[in-house]
Design a protein around this nucleic acid. Structure first.
Length: 343
DNA sequence: AAGCCGGGGTA
DNA sequence: TACCCAGGCTT
């Protein structure tokens, strides 16, 4: 049987019921695709439900404040997705009359929509003949066709896209694209795929040559960097604390955190001179909350973190009541501390 | 072309 | 642990 027919058949028999599969509304499909970038379905599902409930239309999202969108996104990671999503909602409303573009080319111009996401929305909503090539598709194609070209090299990206286009269905691109990703995710899983009862096992090159475990090939990723974070948790005379918004380029852009001292080495003690003009007076008490640094692991950084509790009998200007903290979008590292810290 | 950007699930 | 996830943007 033809490759695409096998995919479609398998999909009909094995598809999961997912809310964004019941609609052709590009707004909802778009939300689901942004959320699912580098994110498993199980992790993204509750976020999808919350975003659709909170913002039923693109106008609702466009009207929201970025902080509110980030708060709803809190815990999903890769926060540029949320910022770009919000910016695109505003663009669609202000420049496109509230309507999403209906072509791959048009969608590609929007912030946060790259080749994969433009192909997904164009094919799912408008039946445009564009193949989707996500991590699942790379894996399936590299194994089935026995291709050891690195999937994240420039040549690999180009070749896999061409191959995906060559083997795609031209009669039901919507189900086929959903199907090939589902097949890769469930049947052709990263480790221990179910080759024994795979409908493609008669013609899979990797299986025939015993290379399932070696494919796909991926270029090595850069090394993890170690950083030392010292958070200054102020407790003032009114039991209020200080939060600052992260600006600039790095991680957690536009999220909030306690005032931060980043150091080259682990810090043993804090002197009054390091308290960043927080307005704590001359005699705050300094207590180290965790003697052993907590290690917060991101994919590219390991953050060795200490929380320093700074109590003062002064009233600190612009301090925030502890009960207001849940209103602010914060990294998981900060949210976990807030949850555990009782003062 | 390579680096950067989160957090969580899985074997 | 190491790898991966319905990737995209910046340098």
């Amino acid at each position: 049987m033809i490759f695409s027919e096998e995919i479609l058949k398998w999909y009909r028999e094995n598809k999961r019921q997912l809310p964004w599969r019941d609609t052709r509304d590009p707004y909802k499909v778009w939300i689901s695709e942004i959320i699912l970038q580098q994110t498993r379905v199980a992790q993204g599902m509750p976020y999808y439900q919350r975003f659709v409930a909170q913002y039923p239309t693109v106008s609702d999202m466009a009207r929201a404040r970025e902080e509110e969108v980030l708060k709803l996104w809190q815990g999903l990671g890769y926060y540029s997705r949320a910022r770009n999503m919000h910016a695109t909602a505003k663009t669609v409303v202000s420049k496109l009359n509230g309507k999403f573009p209906e072509t791959y080319e048009g969608l590609l111009k929007l912030k946060g929509i790259g080749d994969y996401t433009a192909s997904a929305i164009a094919s799912f909503c408008f039946d445009e003949l564009q193949p989707v090539v996500d991590g699942n598709v790379y894996r399936l194609l590299s194994r089935y066709f026995g291709i050891d070209l690195a999937i994240n090299s420039t040549a690999g990206i180009k070749q896999f896209k061409e191959l995906a286009k060559k083997v795609m269905s031209t009669t039901n691109i919507r189900d086929y694209n959903q199907g090939i990703m589902e097949f890769g995710a469930i049947q052709c899983a990263p480790r221990k795929p179910y080759c024994l009862h795979c409908p493609l096992n008669k013609s899979c090159v990797a299986l025939a040559t015993n290379r399932i475990a070696e494919l796909p090939v991926k270029l090595k990723k850069s090394k993890v960097k170690l950083k030392h974070f010292n958070y200054l948790v102020v407790v003032d005379a009114n039991g209020q604390t200080i939060l600052e918004q992260r600006k600039g380029k790095g991680i957690w852009q536009n999220l909030y955190q306690f005032p931060l001292l980043e150091t080259k080495e682990e810090m043993a003690a804090i002197s009054l001179g390091q308290l960043k003009d927080l307005g704590l007076g001359d005699h705050p008490s300094i207590l180290l909350y965790n003697e052993r640094p907590m290690v917060h692991k991101l994919s590219h950084q390991h953050l060795y973190t200490k929380f320093w509790i700074l109590r003062t009998d002064k009233v600190v200007a612009k301090a925030i009541p502890w009960e207001k903290l849940p209103d602010f979008p914060v990294p998981v590292l900060i949210a976990d501390f807030i949850k555990r810290f009782k003062f």
